[in-house]
Design a protein around this nucleic acid. Structure first.
Lengths: 164, 164
DNA sequence: CGGGATCTCTTTAAGCTTCAAGCAATTTGG
DNA sequence: CCAAATTGCTTGAAGCTTAAAGAGATCCCG
């Protein structure tokens, strides 16, 4: 039987420094870009990133969606969405209607004002993102897309294995 | 003079959908992993992610560091670090001393307890991260490292251009 | 020196975020 | 049909986060 230096007993601590460094780099990139987008949104439109994100989700679906849908798509808690929606309804950007077939459900939509303001912000936002990634070639971008898709799948597999 | 389909007036809206999709995918990956790590830290050690991150920074430097250093390394605001450190000193994980040569400066260190607890958590944390990225090959990982380094540089260039 | 600029840190207000508990409506399985 | 489970949403407590203003200490340069 052959044993090489890679063979180890499972109880012994293995070296996973590479994965850790990868995670930290991923986190750094996201934090950096997120901070930049947050600053620009605030200084240019006086809006917070979570509000922009929420409106972005709603803009994708003309008919609006429920709080649960928003919560799943934004990957934040239900209670969080409740508060965000409340503030955006208050400011006139959102509209909420109770479903007629299920009185637990609230349909949320962008108002005319909300949609108009969002579209203006989104157009500029897109150019910021383009500039932030401007030093990447097309090949870099498609390669990064591929690897991130793989990363996402791997992370989901890991999360599911823990919570069956 | 030659004009091809790529030539456009700068005022016309260009299509940057690819970069936007890349950014959303990057954000999704980070959110997914961050949420997973947050859950596990809470359920396994009853500690929050920001506290773990702060202790991780301190663990790298035996002599400790100042609040400003922490703030820069963690990429969060000064006030944020003030509060985190306060709670961790309260719980006995951190130790703070005022510099003798500059009375503005506070040196922060892990206490014996803090270091011991962090090391235990860090060892397990590393295996979680390894599992989360387990479906990526070595080549995937090194390629991702390279592309994220390029992304980071590009984002920093973009941020600097805005705030000179 | 001296006074303005800068640096370190804290404080405050507002908002974001999570988790857990809870309420009401609906669905499901005897 | 009805009780139990599930679903959709809200609430409350605790903690995180930022931006902005401010207090004190140090630095710099005229």
């Amino acid at each position: 039987m052959m044993l090489d230096s890679e063979t180890k007993a499972v109880e012994l601590p293995e070296d996973h420094g590479t994965e850790l460094r990868l995670w930290l780099r991923l986190l750094t990139c996201t934090t950096l870009i997120e901070g930049e987008v947050r600053s620009r949104l605030r200084e240019r439109f006086d809006v917070t990133l979570p509000r922009f994100d929420l409106m972005a989700q709603l803009d994708k679906v003309p008919g609006g969606m429920t709080l649960s849908d928003l919560s799943k798509r934004m990957m934040v808690s239900n209670g969080n969405v409740t508060g965000l929606v409340e503030r955006l309804v208050e400011s006139g950007h959102l509209d909420r209607r109770t479903s007629e077939t299920d009185r637990r459900v609230q349909f949320i939509r962008l108002t005319k004002l909300g949609r108009a303001e969002f579209r203006k912000m989104a157009a500029e936002h897109e150019t910021w993102i383009a500039d932030i990634f401007a030093d990447l070639s097309r090949k870099d971008i498609s390669e990064l897309m591929r690897l991130l898709a793989k990363t996402k799948a791997s992370a989901q597999r890991s999360a599911k294995a823990r919570t069956p």
